[in-house]
Structure formats: structure tokens, C-alpha cells
Design a protein around this nucleic acid. Sequence first.
DNA 1: TTGTAGGCGTTATCAG
DNA 2: CTGATAACGCCTACAA
Lengths: 346, 346
Amino acid sequence: MERSPSQLALTSARRPTIIDVARRAEVSKSVVSRVFSERGKVSAQTRQRVLDAAAELGYVVNAMARAMVAHRTYTLGVFVRDVATPFYGHLLSAMQERADTLGYRVVTATGSGRFAVEDELRALETLVMMRVEGLVIGSGLLPAAQILPFAERVPTVVAGRPETEENFTSVYCDEREGGAALADHLADLGHRYVAVITLRKSESLTLAPRTAAMVQELRRRGVEAVRVIGRGVDAADRWVDQILERPEVTAVMAPSDRYAVRLLEELQRRGVDVPARLSVTGYDGIGELATPLIGLTHWRQPIDAIGRSAVDALVALLDSGPPGRPKRHVLSGTLVLGRSTAPPCR
Amino acid sequence: MERSPSQLALTSARRPTIIDVARRAEVSKSVVSRVFSERGKVSAQTRQRVLDAAAELGYVVNAMARAMVAHRTYTLGVFVRDVATPFYGHLLSAMQERADTLGYRVVTATGSGRFAVEDELRALETLVMMRVEGLVIGSGLLPAAQILPFAERVPTVVAGRPETEENFTSVYCDEREGGAALADHLADLGHRYVAVITLRKSESLTLAPRTAAMVQELRRRGVEAVRVIGRGVDAADRWVDQILERPEVTAVMAPSDRYAVRLLEELQRRGVDVPARLSVTGYDGIGELATPLIGLTHWRQPIDAIGRSAVDALVALLDSGPPGRPKRHVLSGTLVLGRSTAPPCR
DNA sequence: TTGTAGGCGTTATCAG
DNA sequence: CTGATAACGCCTACAA
């Protein structure tokens, strides 16, 4: 059959197969297979002939064909909400590295930018189509109910968010510990009125419980917690409006470093002195925002450990088989003190 | 043949195939194939029966098997040096999105953390094994000579670095334009002695020409350029030592925002006032460091455009076939003025 | 040690 | 519109 030029292009002028190599090395295709899959015995001589022939032809094993018969892909599927976010970027990086040392490949899928659960589901579907052996889900958006159908089919680990659902394995940093630690820090400094930028659970499955923990601990310490509605990271001016309405407030807790920095920008713009007039806390401690240049007091999540543990947990799941019951791996973070918090002025 | 329990686990209790669905829907496997590949005609009735059967079984198309016969994977391979870096994170994000709208999947590979060309090559090899249809290479480390063998086999685009090699298609932001713009800015402000934190080409294929351009433009403008050896992003104290040795220096140009921020940290630590005593410029404008909170004067790279164009160029290459000759797509950036630069004090 | 044959899950081709 | 059947590239008994 004649191929159209475009088809030719697509297949890169017919990539050489095991058979081409076999012909050139004057052996059977089994021998070539044995050489590249590194099992079975092959004499050093033949082996070299095969290797030479393969090199001349530019032969590269076809992972797809191999996977088909081996019933294994040695591939882990990682879904993250947004690679450009430092949190997910680092998470992915840590997983890549860990998977690599365990002999697994990682393929990534993301939810195509827009804020749509539907897109995220399609991305997961793609991962399953590619026959990844396991799934790591890192998304503060996807509800547990949506994840369940996938978890039933392929071993799944949820990473980086406080998973309340008992049905799947998860790895995350305790949000209450972090929220409470920061709240305690402010209480210890003597703040009595603290604003907390709050998010709804529908907006973020990580940020909501985190801020809830802050509020709870503040109240436990007898500090008045003033809720400020978050509504996305770009509404800083509205937060500040609300905060400045209550002059008794001497500190603000942001749900993440990103939020905190937006807040700091706006406060700077309006000439509000930090920390003299207002103390500010962040959360995450990942990536460039953790620079001492900004000096933000925050809770640092052990992102590398989360990534590593997630992969380890997934591989354990793979090895243990279906019955391996869901387990929650809860990691600890660290309080990092910066220059953005101080005792209240008055 | 009996399967061992562990094998069973790995294959998730035998994922259903097209044949299982066919049996359940009481049709031939061809019909099922037609339904899921959406080609050929199938009566609405049968179609529904197939869909139902598939849903009950939890059937998902096997992309591998499909790719084998179709000779297409609709998959683009993207190699980035480090996903955790904002530059590459955003680049990847932009590519993912663009590829998605063009109907391509993206699989990512990275160089496993360590500083080793060998690792990067292995990652590229993996991509080829997976039969990606095209390659995008984003790495300031991998020399052109190493890339060539891959580019000969599969359509390749080099993204995000100034490619001097004529042999492959590339997309990048003109480093000379940016370096010159920043140098001009300082010259215009009246600086006569400017330190430039310089890197070797072996350290980074992007940063080296960038700093070279800065030096060149400074000299063209009659400004004395004082070279400071970079040696990695963590040697800030040594840069500052060198800079302060020359009190006539009133401005410092860093090869990237990251370097600039490290520099600012160290200057802050030593109590050197910016910009009163020393002006500082960065480069990139990507991610969180671009915050007005820091207010760094820098050159902003159009990272989204780079990602988008890289994918577009690659897909064009795919469609045009082998003869499509290498083309260089050079994009423009923007000068962003911050508070880190000012006229020299004296 | 090497070769032969069959099958993995899907699509494409060609009859019915 | 539907059903056989032959690939696709590789691995794996089994036979030589």
C-alpha cells in the first residue's frame, strides 16, 4: 500500500522494528527481543551483532507494544490541578524523582487551565486510557465522589489535601496543626483581634479546612477571629477594606503565601505598615515566595516528603494488590518565623 | 494459564476489553470498535447497547493497543529540566493547554533532579520509547549536539533558549533584546559603573548569552561593565564581596529574577540600600517573584506565548512532514520597571 | 543458545 | 449496517 506523504511524516519514515534489527543482524526476532528485554540467554557475540544492527538502524524499543503483552506499563499517572502553581510544580517534581528511582515513569495530566471539574475528569480518563498502573491525584478541587469511580478501577492515592473520605489512600500535611500553630503564634504575641481570610469548601478543599483550623484555635485561645471572605486571590482590595473597617484588628491570617503576598502588596499600596500596624501570616513555604527578602511568617509544608510518600504509598498499593486497605499518611510541617509578624503596637 | 496473585493485582483484575463488551452487548468486536473510535456507521440501537455494556463493565479504551495499529499516539513529549522552576512550570502549563486544544496529549519527562546530561538523555529516550509524535525540549543544559540524534528521528522543537544551531526548529525570546533593554535603562538613569553577574555557557545556555548581551550593550553606551562571576545561585555573598570592593559601582545586573532576589537578600542582610546605594535588575518576570511587593525591575519573557508557539511549531512540523526546514521563532519581551532601580546617588 | 508460533487489544479491510 | 480476519511490534513458552 502506498502511504501519503503526511502519513510518512507522522511515522517518521517507518521506525525500525525488532524485525528490521533481526534481519540486519541475521538472527530471529526472539533474539533481538531477548537482548533488549534483558532476559533469557544470548551469546556475547550475537548480542553485540544485535546491538550494532540496532544502533545502525536507530532502533528504539516500542514501549506500547511491550506494554501490550507484558500487561505492565511501569507508568504512574499524576494529575495536578495546575503545573504552574509552585505547590503542584514541586509536588510533581518530587514525585518524578521518586518514581524514577523506583523504576516507574510518570505521565502528567492537568485540567486544561479553566476552572471545570469536567475537564479534570477527562484528563483522568486519558490517564486511564494510557493504562497507567496507578494514579496520584493532586487537586484541591475534585470532590471525593468524582474520584471514587477511578479509584475503584486503578490503585489511587490522593496527595496534598486533607482527605476526609475513608475510601482511599491519601498523603497530606495536617492542616489543623499548621493553622493552629500560626494562630498560637499570634496569640502568644498578644494579638486579641485577628482577621482570617476565609474560603469555602467549594472553592478549595485544602484552603477551607486550613482557615477553619485557624479560626478554631484563635477562639480556643480567647482571641476574637474576624472572618474576611476570600473570593479568589485577586480580591485583595476588598479584604483590606473589610480589615481596615475594624481598627481593633492587629493581625491577618492568609490561607496561603500567595494570598498573603497579594495582601502585603495591597497593604503596601495603601501605606499600611507591616508588622507595626498589622501582622500577616502565610501558609505553604514552597517556592520563591519563601524568600527571606519578603520574610513572611508562615507554615512550611514538607512538599518533597509529600511527593515521595505519595509515590511510595502508590507503589506499595500496586505491590500489595487490591485488598490493601486505604491508609492515611499525615505529615508534619514547620513553623517559619519571618518579619511579617510582631506584637501588636498598642 | 494461571496468573499469580501479584499479576492479577497489577492488571486490576483483568481490565475488560473490547471483546468483553462485544460479548455482553451481543455484537461483534468490530461494532464496539466503531462505537468507540467514532468512525463507520452503527445503528443508534446497537450503539446504545454497546455503550450500556461498556458502562456496566467499566470499559475504557486501551490507548496502547489503539496506537499500535493506528501508528499514531496523539502524544507530544515535553522534556523540561526541572518542573519546580517557575519558568519551566509555566512553560509546561502553557504547552499542556495548547496541545489540549489541538487534540494532543502531553507526556513530560525531567532529568531526575541531579545535574547530569546523562539523565536527561535517558529521559528523552523514554519519551521516544513511548512513541511520542514530537518532542519539545526545554533545557538550558543539553547541548545541541546531544539533541541532534533525537531530532533526526522525531520532529523536535527547542523551546526557551536562544538556539544557535541551525539544524532544528526553535522558539525563544531574544536574549539580546532583553539584556540590551535593561542595560539601556541603567545607562539612561546615569549609571557609569555597572556590575554584571556573569555565567559561562557551560553553566547555562540561556543565562550566558543574556549576560553577554548586557555587557555588550553597557560598553556600547560607554558604561563600564564589571564582570562578577556567578557560580550558581547560592554564592550571593561572594558576588556582594566582589561588588562592594568597587565602590564606584552603582548598579548590578543579575541574569535572572532568582539571582536578583538572592542578591537582594544578601544586600538586605548587609544593610546595603536598594536602590539608593545600588540599583538591581532581574530577568524573566515569571511566577511569584514578579510581585510588585518586591518591585524588581526586570525583563519579562512572554512565557505563555513561548509555550503556545512551541506546540504550534511542533504540530506544524508534524503536519508538514520531514522536509519542513528548521525555523526560528523569536519572540519579544517587555521591560518592567520596578522600585529596584533609580539614578545613582551621587 | 537459537528459532517458531501464538497472542496482547485495537483498527482497517473486505465480504455479507 | 454488521461480522470475520489480518495486521501492528513485542514477549514468551516450547521446540530444535
